[in-house]
Computed example of a mutant assay.
Amino acid sequence: MTVEPGPAVLWLGLGVVLAIPYILAGRRLGDGGTRWWMLGLIVAALVYVGFAVARSAPPMAIAFEAGGVFLYGAIAANGLRGDVRWIGAAWLLHPVWDIGLHHPGGFAYAPTEYVLLCSTFDVVVGVYLLLGSMGAVLEDTRS
């Protein structure tokens, strides 16, 4: 990862900004956006597979990234059973993948700008989902 501090902050901020319309779109869906949140997470993981393939990464790296799609998809799939907190947790875990694998000395095929943008996007969506589900739980206990 080599991005100057100034531009790095811009990419981190762009991730926050882009998460807002994504969240607003998901809020408009009748099912609470459960499938929207899950599919978005799978797409975010698939992007890394695309980078690995496009940049001719070793087959082991491509397989590892594909395993990440399965891992995050499996965690998020629990949210389809009605508990969106699973999807929120998966979104919050995804930055560990973003930064943990694509740090200096890590897998070099993902552009640093995307890693930065994706990590803050993921955190904003994950926090939104967890806080929103906590609000729903609190409302249920008041009833």
Score class of each variant (00 low, 15 high):
V47M: 07
T2M: 15
R55W: 01
A110R: 11
G67D: 06
L14Q: 13
L101R: 11
E113M: 15
P58M: 06
L116K: 00
D98Q: 03
L41V: 13
V43R: 01
G82C: 02
L130Q: 03
V16M: 08
D122H: 03
A89K: 07
G88Y: 09
T112W: 13
W97R: 14
G73A: 10
G6Y: 07
P21M: 10
D31P: 03
R55Y: 04
V16L: 04
A52G: 13
N78V: 07
A57W: 00
A44V: 06
Y22W: 14
G79N: 03
A54T: 10
V47F: 04
P58G: 10
R35E: 10
Y72G: 09
G73W: 04
A74R: 06
S56Q: 10
V49G: 06
A110V: 12
V115W: 10
L101M: 15
R55A: 00
V124Q: 06
L46K: 00
I42G: 01
T120P: 05
L18G: 04
P5N: 09
I75R: 02
V124L: 14
T120N: 04
F70K: 11
I75C: 04
P111H: 09
T112H: 11
V9E: 06
L117K: 05
V3A: 01
I62H: 05
A44C: 14
A110S: 15
P21L: 03
G82T: 08
Y114G: 02
G50L: 01
V53T: 05
V43I: 15
G88Q: 02
T120E: 02
D140G: 11
G105M: 13
L39Y: 15
G13H: 03
P58D: 09
I62V: 13
F51E: 00
L80H: 06
A110Q: 05
A57K: 02
W11E: 09
A57V: 04
P111G: 14
V53D: 01
P21D: 04
P111Q: 12
T2G: 15
L117P: 05
L10G: 13
A76Y: 13
R85P: 02
W91D: 05
P5I: 02
Y48D: 02
P5T: 10
R35I: 12
G100R: 15
Y109K: 00
V9D: 07
R35V: 13
L131I: 15
Y72N: 07
R55L: 00
L24E: 09
G68Y: 10
L29K: 08
G40A: 13
N78L: 11
G106Q: 14
W86E: 04
V125N: 02
Y109M: 12
M38D: 05
L129A: 05
L131G: 08
A44M: 15
A76G: 08
